[in-house]
């Protein structure tokens, strides 16, 4: 393993985060605060509680997930797309590093950044609603796994994308709807039975459910199933990346 190289990529990418600290951190915090105002306060004042949890608190895990998932994809996607776009990828390809090392560097930095954002949003949430996290370790496990798996997914999109439009396409057209319909703002038990069944095909449901369980001890699906879903997704992304680098798809001519 070329640890120096991994560290070099990681540091370089994190330096971008610090350089663009306002865009990186402040904007998700502001948008999350808006969600709290609109959903938590304005609408939430009319919904007293969901399954024994105050509505304002109930949406916190979903909001964190929403930001963490979009941020992970955006960070990792941009992280690898940008060198492709401006041509600096020549240096990665000509360096004595394996593809695994490139992935660890880029995905590690992207996941770190989104985990930071997730924790900052959590801290922001405390300003709006009183909460108690029942399983803090599990909360961190789910947060870390989500950051990791969606950063891997974002990395794939970054390699796949041939232009900036494509880079935005998947997050906008697929991920945002999946997250919104994944129970970020409601419990799936609030849906009609048909939709409850359809929901089970949405992978994000399992993530939000697991994450919410770590907070409040209540879940739409079992904890084991949630873990299985996220590990399966991580594995699938790793498999695709392994194939990409074996074939040089969209990286090497």
């Amino acid at each position: 393993m070329n640890w120096q190289a991994i560290l070099a990529i990681y540091r370089f990418e994190m330096a971008r985060t610090w350089r663009t600290i306002w865009q990186s951190i402040v904007s998700p915090v502001i948008s999350t605060s808006l969600y709290f105002v609109v959903f938590g306060t304005a609408i939430g004042s009319r919904i007293s509680e969901v399954e024994g949890v105050a509505y304002g608190a109930f949406i916190v895990p979903g909001l964190i997930m929403l930001s963490v998932i979009t941020q992970s994809i955006a960070n990792a996607g941009f992280g690898i797309y940008f060198p492709k776009f401006i041509g600096t990828i020549y240096e990665l390809l000509s360096a004595p590093i394996s593809f695994l090392e490139i992935v660890i560097g880029y995905v590690g930095a992207a996941a770190t950044k989104s985990a930071m954002i997730g924790l900052i949003i959590l801290a922001t949430a405390y300003l709006f609603v009183p909460m108690q996290i029942q399983h803090p370790v599990w909360m961190l496990v789910f947060l870390a796994l989500t950051c990791l798996s969606f950063s891997l997914f974002g990395f794939i999109i970054g390699i796949w994308a041939k232009n900036f439009e494509q880079l935005q396409l998947v997050p906008l057209l697929i991920v945002t709807p999946l997250v919104f319909l994944g129970g970020a703002f409601y419990s799936s038990s609030m849906l009609p039975p048909v939709w409850q069944t359809i929901t089970l095909f949405n992978p994000v449901v399992y993530l939000i459910s697991g994450f919410r369980w770590a907070f409040f001890g209540l879940a739409d699906v079992s904890l084991g199933l949630s873990l299985l879903a996220i590990l399966g997704f991580t594995g699938a992304c790793l498999g695709v990346i392994w194939w990409i680098f074996r074939t040089g798809w969209r990286i090497k001519s």
Binding site: A5, A8, A15, L92, P96, I97
Partner: peptide, 11 residues
Amino acid sequence: NTVRLSRGLFG
């Protein structure tokens, strides 16, 4: 920074 990165990439 960018020159440092290059050195790091080469281990």
